[in-house]
Amino acid sequence: MEAIRVEELTRRYGGVDVVDHVSFRVPEGKVFGFMGHNGAGKTTTLRMLLGLCWPTSGRGEVLGCDIVRESLAIRRLTGFLPAEYSLPREMTAVQFLHYVAAMFDMGSGESRRRVAELVELFGIGPYANRKLASLSTGMAQKVGLAQAVLNRPRLLLLDEPTAGLDPLGRHDFLQYIRGLARDEGVTVLFSTHILGDIESICEDVAILHQGRLLAAGQLAALKAEHAAATMDDLYLQLVRRPS
């Protein structure tokens, strides 16, 4: 079963195809690396999958739901951590998580239980009642991830989630993502330009460059096919290959 299926997905802004006829499939229960440097079209693709913007052409399904017609159903089943975001400065972490729970129509009892679980899980406790404006980058990212998994999603879309984290924070973050897929069967679409992150937690990847898909499939198979020893070699070969 596939968590995501995208066919010929295209998005045009001002005459430029920032996502250009992209097709790929993401198997369920895996951490799928979505790779490409800044401006490759990763963020736009993720946003189209969630109905935050609409494709110019092409089609896609997420967890069996059409990305244009059934985006609300998709958003009920998914979690999303955007690349660039900020948290409401005047709220505390707990207030913010309760606010997000209300967006899922959670009752007050369920909301209290789930928020308490997440505060415990992410070690937010000592900072839970401090204004979000006062949190460090790493702690804010934990709150960001907590809001993304608040609804126990079947699919988690992470856009550049480790950018800005220190090495320890990054390690913990990747461990948590690995555990989500392994222990809870959550599918994770991990969008990043940090090749080391892809290599450390992804078995399957799609590589995007200037809006176009260069390759997609099992990472080991792609490396073998292109005689690449490392992720860096594979990426450079694909990007520098004449189109």
Binding site: R75, E84, S86, M103
Partner: peptide, 14 residues
């Protein structure tokens, strides 16, 4: 402006 909209609109809310 505060870059919170992608988080909110990624929830099941029109």
């Amino acid at each position: 402006a505060q870059r919170m909209l992608p988080i909110y609109l990624a929830k099941p809310i029109t």
